[in-house]
Each structure stands twice: as C-alpha cells, then as structure tokens.
Design a protein around this nucleic acid. Sequence first.
DNA 1: TTTCCTATTGAACGCCTGTTCAGTTATAGC
DNA 2: GCTATAACTGAACAGGCGTTCAATAGGAAA
Lengths: 195, 195
Amino acid sequence: MARKQGSHAGITGPKVREAALRLFARHGYAAVSMRQIAAVVGVQAGALYTYTPDKQSLLSDLMLEHMRELMATLAEAPGDAGPLAALEGFVRNHIRFHLPRADAVFVSYMELRNLTPENFARVEALRRQYEAVLEAILERGAEAGMLRRVDARVTAMALIALMTGVTNWYREGGRLPRAEIEEIYWDLVRRAVAA
Amino acid sequence: MARKQGSHAGITGPKVREAALRLFARHGYAAVSMRQIAAVVGVQAGALYTYTPDKQSLLSDLMLEHMRELMATLAEAPGDAGPLAALEGFVRNHIRFHLPRADAVFVSYMELRNLTPENFARVEALRRQYEAVLEAILERGAEAGMLRRVDARVTAMALIALMTGVTNWYREGGRLPRAEIEEIYWDLVRRAVAA
DNA sequence: TTTCCTATTGAACGCCTGTTCAGTTATAGC
DNA sequence: GCTATAACTGAACAGGCGTTCAATAGGAAA
C-alpha cells in the first residue's frame, strides 16, 4: 500500500511538525522516537523523511521557527514610543505571544541541550537579540529618568524568566482570563523597575 | 576482575548519584544511558544496580532529595518575623539555595515529565508545599498592610519563576558576586509586591 | 590461613533506535 | 487512457538500550 487518498504533501508536512512539537513538549526530544511521531501522523516512520532530513532538523526547525516568530512580533511594535510605553509593549507582547504556545516555549527552553552546536548557536543568537531589546529599553528608560537604574543584563534576564514562567501554570480555560493575567504581569514588571 | 581496591560501597554510591545528576542536567534523563553513567563512575553498567533498583529511581531520588533539602531550609527560618522580613528571608533563601545548585534545579524543573505518575505526585506535592509558603507570606503581608493586595497564587508562581531563573544565566566566578545578585533579586521582588 | 561476603565484571537477554531503500500505489498532467 | 512522479510502505541495517546474573576478586573477620 502507498498513499491512501489525495495528495498529502501539503497536509502531512505540517502534521509532522505539529506531532513532533506536541510529543517533544510532553516527553522530551530524546524520549520520543520517529516511530511515535509517525504513529500520531498516521504514517510509517520512513515516510517522515520526505519532510525532514533527520530528527535533529525536526527539532531545530521548530525552535528556530519559534524564535523567528517571536522576533517578528517585536518588529510590529511602534519604535517611537517612550521607554515606559516600550516596556509595556514588550511585556504585553511577551505574555500574549507565550500564553498560547506552551508547547513551543517548553521545547525552546528545554531542548537547547539536544541541539547540535551549530543549531544551538543559531537559536542562541536569536535569543540574545530578543534579550538585548529588553536591555535597551531598560537602559533608555533609566537615562530618561522613567525607570530605575538597574543592572540591565541581570534585570532583563530576571524579567524574562518572570514572564515566561506564565506557561508553567497557565491552562486554557483556567480561573483567570488572559487579559487579566497580562495585567498582573505588567503590574509586577512595572513596579519592579519603575523609577 | 572484581573490586580493584578497598571497600567501595560508601564511595561508589555517592559517585553514582553525582554522575547521574551531572549527566541528566547536561543531556537530559532520556538521553543518558546507564552505561554512560557507569563510565563516569568508573565501573561497568551492571554495578550500578548495587546502588539503585533502576534508572527511574535514580532520577526520582535526586529530585526528591532536592525538594526535601529546599523544604528543610525553610524550616530554619524564624517563624515570628513580620511579613516583609518573612518575604525577604524567603527570597534570599531561595536565591542562596538555588545559585550553587544549577544542575539539581535544571533536573528538578525539566525532568518532571520523565517521572512515573507516583514519583511525579511525590515531587509535585513538595513543590506545592513550597509555593504555598510564599502564597501565605503574600496573603499575610496584604492583611497587615505591608504588601500590595495581589492574586497570591499567580504572584507566587511569577516570583518563583523570576528567582529560579537566576540559574539560567549565573556562572561560578562571573561578573557579579552572589551577595550582589541576591540584592538585585530581593530588590526586584520587594518593589513588585510592596504596598 | 581460611572463610565469608560485598563489590564488581562481562556476557547475554529481548527490545527499541534512527535511517535507508527497493518496491508499490494513487494522483496530476498530458 | 496513459505516463510520470510524488507519497508512502515495510523490511532491513547496525547499533544502543535497561536490566539480569553466574562467576570472581579482594578485603574483613575468625
């Protein structure tokens, strides 16, 4: 038996990535076999190699795509806003982006160690870029007197950890609506660094 | 060949746990084989089973020990302090405990998914206890008027993520001394929830 | 010196791994 | 209706996995 019905390239490809993301997030990259991914997609393991050259690329593609999407959302933000507005935009954007992407966040933060050195460097470079944006906002804010003088690097790392942590406990349809969670986190960040 | 020299039970046992912790942190539980652990210890894979019934117990024992140690440090804190002092004690204790334990923290937060349901429940119960201590401090502080009224559950999770994130970037012998890092984090937390 | 026992080896078990590939089928284009 | 080809199967590959266990070496106790 081969294809069962219709042309599947445009359907199976995304399905492979979705299944891999979900399984990597639930059980970890190393614990998931190509046969398990194939079973979820509904094909044999060999068929996966039409869509990825190997398992490693499946992981690194997912992580690079996640980081590129995140960076793209930053580009949409208005560049001429004041430091406080810029910070608010960054925080709200971060929460909004991460909340519905628990799986991708989990994978992106947990599976760095399973990347080859080259792929690790690529993902890490994007992450540094993202962190640098927040650092710059903190520094501009301090110069403008709108934010406290802080160690920009450490504070940026601390705030990003604070915000990203939302995916540790948030569950779809939970006690709090997303907008309220966004308010709580923005409130915490603002107070932590306000002048 | 059997034993090479001396009685090793008291030495090999800890070495096995140390090697496992280090390797699990670096490469992940699923990616590390019993043969790799044995190689670091300097024995054959079969010898590990003198010290652990199986690989799963090796992981769950490490995680349970980590959480029990963490809970033990809380018990040392003075119970009659005011809410602000209690919060400060909690934060400083958390940073001080986590800073030199990057491997154990990594494993404890990353490998929950590789625990059997029973072991997961045990570790999770301890974690909930720990989070509840911070929640209680936040609630007491709000009642006493020393801290802002906040959603205690969400805020506790956010603050713990903020603090634990220190292990993401801290490296022994880095730019900042530990005491200064502790100050920065306490400052961020205090301002975030101060009345 | 002999005996006992703990710590360890090294081989073996059945099973699973990522990946390759010749063969097969269903569809799209002519 | 025919043909070219993209999509997929299913078997095979070599190698690694966690775990078990009879055999054995070496120190401790007598």
